[in-house]
Design a protein around this nucleic acid. Sequence first.
DNA 1: GTCTATACATCGATAGAC
DNA 2: GTCTATCGATGTATAGAC
Lengths: 193, 193
Amino acid sequence: MSTAERLIESTRDLLWERGYVGTSPKAILERAGAGQGSMYHHFTGKPDLALAAIRRTAEELRAAADAVLDGPGTPYDRIAAYLRRERDVLRGCPVGRLTMDPDVIASDTLRAPVEETITWLRGRIAAVVDEGRRLGQFPAESDPDELAATVVATVQGGYVLARASGSPDAFDAGVRGLLALLAPRTPAAPATD
Amino acid sequence: MSTAERLIESTRDLLWERGYVGTSPKAILERAGAGQGSMYHHFTGKPDLALAAIRRTAEELRAAADAVLDGPGTPYDRIAAYLRRERDVLRGCPVGRLTMDPDVIASDTLRAPVEETITWLRGRIAAVVDEGRRLGQFPAESDPDELAATVVATVQGGYVLARASGSPDAFDAGVRGLLALLAPRTPAAPATD
DNA sequence: GTCTATACATCGATAGAC
DNA sequence: GTCTATCGATGTATAGAC
């Protein structure tokens, strides 16, 4: 792996673990096994390196979401798969957590990939909800955009509950509660009577 | 207001705005209009002052939640009131955001008030859900603890969506989606047929 | 109690040798 | 491309005057 690659990967780890404000160039360099010179040769500074790291993390998150949302099953199944997909719950969301970083939110450049990713995810899930609505799996009067926001919020908030309690259980409880609310009351399959 | 009071209030503001890692004693002192000596006279250091600030913020949050959850209306109404209560959405949750602060989570002392508050809130809402369930306002098979986790997670995650997009609208969308799912299908009032 | 002075490490960046 | 040396500013804490 090239030095630039190692710098990006180390930054990704540290942004996830400690956030932007809590991550220093020094810590990045130590983890990457590189000197100051390397970092400032490949990147203009901390924000530039962080941007590269955030973009890559965002890309990975989109790919992971696509994998389950494009998967097999009914719309409900795919949303359930998204909600239940394996996560490092106690580490939090590597993208969502950046919204609590004051320096990320203060910078349009750093916030952009975060905003794009969350907006994309909401749209992606809204499309699945809409599909389910047209199939009669969700109530006709459901608003796909709103339900999608609820789904994404439950996941993002689940991380908060889990980290507060120090256990992934709280995340799972929130997900189960939401799935119970979403569960089709009337089977989507053709009625048999 | 005493110097100690001003120090605590300044720390509360900064913890909300910038988190623990992003808040320096220097910034606190400037905002409080105090010198180094005052801070180290009243508190043993940054963690001690932060603990006092977090405890007070947690207390306020509990009082605000109590006000709506003990308010008038059916269980559904009170949960809706909690979800819709006025919030500084773009600032995020002054307690929940601390879960993304690595140094807060790393310290049992600092994490304790955060954990207690979130746990208390979940229990408080679970009791309201349970009351609604016994009234027939929520399905008999609902799990109060899980639904409560979903409610709290939607709020906490709503802050993430709002801060990502730079607008409170996303928070409101998530709340509306959840309320639509929670809305009693069958009126709790005695059937009239 | 509050202040200023000081200490010593770290932050983020630059300089310049190799 | 990578390294070490250095820089001025800030972070957190202590000392000691008033």
